[in-house]
Amino acid sequence: MIFWVYFVLVFLAYVIPFTLLSGVTRISGSFLFWVIFAVLSLILLFKMMGTWNDEY
């Protein structure tokens, strides 16, 4: 489930800045969006790694 949510997030990272934010010429536009995208990605990756165990 997290895996698919993750790929939706990556898809949005490609689409949103080129559409909704393409006219926002402020730091709170694409810059902030991509930073938030990266933070969310990292949180999801940490969650995914949390399911690992050494008996894998």
Partner: peptide, 23 residues
């Protein structure tokens, strides 16, 4: 401009492959 940030952070998000396939 800012596209460089998006490009490099998309790279960082690509660590998902190491997380999924790493084990």
């Amino acid at each position: 401009g800012v596209g460089a940030l998006g490009f490099e952070l998309v790279y960082l998000s690509g660590l998902v492959w190491a997380v999924v396939l790493g084990p």
